[in-house]
Design a binder for these strands. Structure first.
Lengths: 208, 208, 208, 208
DNA sequence: GATGAATGAGGGTTCATTCAT
DNA sequence: TATGAATGAACCCTCATTCAT
């Protein structure tokens, strides 16, 4: 077990080093030797633990992804009512923890690679689909399905837009501002979706 | 002038070649020699017309930027009423012409570089600010200023989100879908902004 | 002894793996790690059983050598008459068993290294000398010594030529064709060596 | 023209450097950087003039091949009679000029690579086929076709065997010895091919 | 006996850039 | 204006070898 552990530890260290470098210097200037140096290892170690530079990048994207979604999933699970679940989605996406300059910039780098790398596409798709499904599921307990699907799609797009804005202009959008924008967007959309009808289950309690 | 013309022609050819390569292989794999080869010129020509690789990239981003905003600016200028101007913003951003896979992907590549390159930041800021100002100006003729500023910000963010979605999942969002989403978003936001009040200047005529 | 047996078994497995790899990928692309992987062992095992890569190669050449000469020596020992012994030399060299594409190609790889490696030279010389001595000894019981020496030398050269041809163009020479060529060569040489004289000992019986 | 010349000059220098290194250290230890250093150029120059390490090796084999066959072809062209042409084949193959330790050793290195490299196969095949055709053509003017084909094949094999012997044991076969062996082989074969018949054109004169 | 983590040099190749022509 | 020869550093990756476990 100690034997297996060392692999995982080293892999983790390398992935962390890669993440740091991508944030600091950009994916373009990240190199295998820089990663090993940053991790305090010899040049060859990256290829001892990863088949490829691509494999390292894949693992790095996966970890970045896990860090970000952990916030979202955790909050959504903790939520009691459907509307709280939707709020948890926003809060998780634009939380102080995950909405870091480093995270956002690194994530943008990966986004830019997705169109040309099937493996990254797959990773991205899995997360995107699951998130949107969860969101739509929560929304369907509040409003009509067709509206729910639209809002789920629009809200994810809007949140992505916030991430993008934050990446391109780090001083442009603080987490608090981001959340405020998303909340208003959600309120307006919900208001338009159920103009004057009585809410069937205003509190959302009782819904699984 | 004929002398200068040749310079401009060559510069244009190199920038076009760079754009093609960025779309096809990514910014990461674009190289000076590939660009010159694609443009049908010798290796040294890039440095004859550009100070260095960075200058070429800057010019390339500028051209990409011009191509995209030309659509938007043109349509917004042609619009007669404020609301048409807002629609023109959406249509121009998500038009069949500018909303190409090539454009979107290349643009995303540049977005990812912005955080680390002051020069690119400046280029991006100029465009972003001008666009948002135009949009806010038009909106202020329809609704109250505080709402107008929010919607201008939110709409640009939303449109960016659509671009991002299109870049990451090319089959995910067609231009038509993108426009439909943006229109609905606009309608909902406007509806929330002026709930029951009579519009002060419904046609927008008279506004510059 | 059981302890030693395991050593020998492992050594044999490594040498076999080396032979396979040399045949498949060439000596140039054979590496210690590939050998250990092919043998199903850990990287370090090669250096546990062999001083270094050179020692492994030496052992590999020795084994290849043994496999090939086993055919020849066995057949020559079984032969009853001198001329049968000469035939056995040809048959053993170009037998269906030893004249394999794998054997021939690997052997050629080693031949190419011989000029620069004293150790390999020694191994090669021992075998070459013994074979040629055996052959000359048998021939001297058929024809005059000076002719016998020539034919022994020429026949070994010719057989080497056949091996070379087979290595370079695997479809070029089948074992059967190779034997036919060698037999004809032998006949012509013998005919030229004893033009019209009565053979001193036509059957070769009585010769040790 | 001067421009084009420099390419050819450099290419030639690199190929020469490669040949030297292959002779001295073996194909296994020849590296691109060693070649450029030996040629007095920077590391990258090899890839400026050759697509690949493979392309360099291909050009190297081609040049080695040309050097060797130049001797043979020149002598065969100068020969007046068919039998002289056959002798020219032997003399050219085992001449003091081409039958150098360096040539022989380098050639053997390439032979060993042929089985795994299609491009080298092609180069080898072209030469081998042409040589043997020329030889058979000359022989057919002396003896019956079926014998001519056999002797052409056997003689090329025998000469290859001599080369191989020379490569593996440089002190083993001098050019003079090699020629003597080949001549005797030829004589014996011819004698066996036309035992007692009158030669149709004993001098070979008049044959083109 | 056996593992595989670790090293650092060297492999082939591409790179941005300079400069003589 | 235009060429492409030349450089040397850096790229990703594989190597033989050592050694703690």
């Amino acid at each position: 077990m100690a034997r297996q552990a060392i692999s995982e530890i080293r892999r983790g260290e390398l992935v962390d080093a890669a993440l740091e470098l991508i944030h600091e210097q950009g994916l373009m200037n990240m190199s295998v030797s820089k990663v090993s140096a940053r991790a305090g290892l010899a040049t060859g170690m990256v290829h001892h633990y990863f088949a490829d530079k691509g494999a390292l990048l894949e693992a790095t994207m996966r970890r970045l992804n896990k860090r970000i979604t952990a916030q979202i999933v955790g909050r959504m699970r903790a939520a009691q009512t459907p509307i709280e679940r939707v709020h948890a989605f926003i809060d998780g996406n634009v939380s102080e923890d995950s909405f870091t300059a480093a995270h956002v910039a690194a994530w943008l780098e990966f986004w830019a690679q997705v169109p040309r790398h099937v493996q990254l596409q797959r990773i991205h798709d899995v997360v995107a689909r699951r998130t949107r499904t969860n969101l739509a599921h929560a929304l369907k307990q509040i409003i009509a399905p067709e509206h729910a699907d639209y809002i789920a799609q629009a809200l994810t797009i809007f949140v992505d837009g916030i991430w993008l804005r934050a990446a391109v202009d780090p001083q442009g959008v603080t987490p608090a501002e981001g959340r405020r924008l998303a909340y208003r967007f959600l309120e307006d959309s919900l208001a338009a979706a159920k103009p004057k009808t009585a809410k069937p289950n205003p509190t959302g309690r009782g819904a699984k």
